[in-house]
Design a protein around this nucleic acid. Structure first.
Length: 292
DNA sequence: TGCCAGGAAAAGA
DNA sequence: TCTTTTCCTGGC
């Protein structure tokens, strides 16, 4: 457990002595798209149809617009607070490059986000840049999500499958999804018609989950790895995007090794902690703009 | 204007 | 099975 205690104080909760927790590291490491930076120690975002505001002061984290019930039900697992990141970091730091990456992104935590939201979000991420991904997701939420309020501002939750499967291909295109609109449309249909049940995918082993996710339209190896890592607690996933590819080819492998080969090597090298290793590597190489 | 970034699907070898 | 081409959008 990476905190000592939780207190509820009128519409907010305070988590004391929180360890391995940095808002910037968590929200800027490419795993989520719906958090808005107010300041380095202050973010507002929407998850599980709730708006919350986070503020980190010293070693304490305050979650505004929440309560103890939601903390136990949602936020404790969302922020992966029961996990001791020190042991993960110590283990990964035996590798010299990883040691640097871990020091750089010392406050990263892997979130447990909503699987359906992540399936759609990472379909949108394919061949797409982060600002554009955020814009498309925002368009979808604004048009089809539940309307929420906080401090007089309007926010929108991510639409449920019950809502999104009714949306037409044209409406999805109008959200600037481009060629991915068709993938979203088809995947929503498949999930809604229960050809592919999210709950049953959740129960699979990591390898079976990776295979099963790729049966959905618009999901290949990288997107499947992201979904299982960021929403299904399957930590042997090793998403290989252009940044991780650069890092791996630069520091561990020959330049001609394929994406598939890089994934196999990463999972073999880092085992059950591959997903954590990938996150530290991704954040380190992207923030430092390490290319070649 | 043209070119680039960014993964999956479909076509080709 | 592996490799190449096409898809869409915003920014330079």
């Amino acid at each position: 457990m990476d905190y000592t205690k939780v207190e509820e104080i009128k519409d907010s909760i305070i988590i004391r002595d929180i360890k391995n927790f940095d808002l910037t590291h968590i929200f800027e490491c490419g795993q989520c798209f719906r958090w808005k930076r107010i300041a380095s120690d202050n973010y507002i975002g929407v998850a599980y149809n709730k708006v919350i505001e986070l503020e980190k002061k010293g070693q304490d984290l305050t979650i505004y617009n929440s309560n103890l019930r939601d903390f136990n039900l949602i936020w404790k697992s969302y922020f992966d607070l029961d996990r001791e990141y020190n042991s993960i970091k110590d283990s990964l730091s035996e590798d010299q490059l990883l040691k640097k990456a871990v020091e750089f992104g010392h406050g990263i935590r892997i979130l447990t986000q909503e699987p359906f939201e992540l399936i759609i979000s990472f379909i949108i991420s394919s061949n797409n840049r982060i600002p554009m991904i955020k814009k498309v997701i925002d368009n979808i939420c604004t048009r089809f999500g539940e309307r929420l309020q906080y401090k007089g501002e309007i926010y929108y939750g991510f639409p449920s499958i019950d809502k999104l499967h009714l949306v037409t291909l044209e409406e999805l295109k109008a959200c600037s999804a481009g060629f991915r609109a068709k993938y979203i449309y088809e995947t929503c249909k498949a999930i809604y018609e229960n050809k592919s049940s999210i709950d049953s995918i959740l129960g699979l082993t990591d390898d079976a989950c990776h295979v099963e996710l790729q049966k959905l339209s618009g999901i290949g190896p990288k997107v499947a790895d992201c979904i299982m890592l960021f929403s299904m607690s399957k930590y042997s996933a090793f998403p290989v995007d252009v940044w991780v590819k650069r890092a791996m080819q630069n520091f561990y492998l020959a330049p001609e090794v394929s994406l598939k080969g890089i994934r196999i090597y990463g999972r073999d090298k880092f085992g059950a902690l591959a997903g954590f290793a990938q996150q530290y590597l991704f954040y380190y190489t992207r923030e430092n703009n390490i290319k070649v």
